[in-house]
Nucleic acid binder design. Sequence first.
DNA 1: CATAAGGTCTCCATAAGGTGGAGAGTCAAG
DNA 2: CTTGACTCTCCACCTTATGGAGACCTTATG
Lengths: 132, 132
Amino acid sequence: MNIGEAAKKSNLPIKTVRFYSDIGLINPKTNENSNYRIFTNQDIEKLLFVGKARKFNFSIEECRELLSLYENRTRSSNEVKKLTLKKIDEIDQKMSELNSLKKELSRVAKSCSGDQRPECPIIGFLANNKKN
Amino acid sequence: MNIGEAAKKSNLPIKTVRFYSDIGLINPKTNENSNYRIFTNQDIEKLLFVGKARKFNFSIEECRELLSLYENRTRSSNEVKKLTLKKIDEIDQKMSELNSLKKELSRVAKSCSGDQRPECPIIGFLANNKKN
DNA sequence: CATAAGGTCTCCATAAGGTGGAGAGTCAAG
DNA sequence: CTTGACTCTCCACCTTATGGAGACCTTATG
């Protein structure tokens, strides 16, 4: 099938499918006459796989890795699990960063009267390099 | 002072200071002879301000806005507070996204034996386009 | 058969927020 | 004067796409 149908079936924008093909995440064949990309059902499966993995915050390179594990019938589930646990760790880290961020911002926001006067503890906080 | 000292004092990489200067976030004077940038203490303050705001997830454009509020002695604290509350909202949203992401990943990771066998529910999960 | 509409192609630009390197100019010390 | 350390500008690259231009292909219709 052509790229339009492939895009529809994989729920990805055409541009994205073309991009994934450009970077070799998938390798559709090429019609020698028209130069059109030709997608198989297997390509669609891979696109769906990648689409999902991307939604789950796996990077393109991780997707590439997962795809090769996906294709490798002799790989151990261990490798896949390791990648997943690493991803969970990253999410944890990100969340705790965001959490402390939020705490500090909430604190300064609370201390700001938010009125018409120019005095603002938030600005003071951001400008103060000595503490915090 | 020159850019090297400015970078040290503001705890930013030289390249970043130059970048901020290029995009007009700060506007150091220029030595006409050497073409070197000349930074004042006020420039350092601004750099520290931006450095901190960036850490707190304010975008460059938001930093630009904050800087102009910072410099504007007649602005109301209201405007600053509004920007901060918006930022807190964004953080909340991001956190809840990450949270559901983590839940799903944890679930599939838990269901994976992580051994030498190739059977892996994670791969199955990512490959399955029909449900979840 | 010609033409029009719609698909597809490649190439380039843009986004954010920088980072890295090349090659040239500047400055201060020995 | 030379050496080394700084700094300059300009360009490319990173990630993950997205948007448009201009050209080519395919299919349907008159």
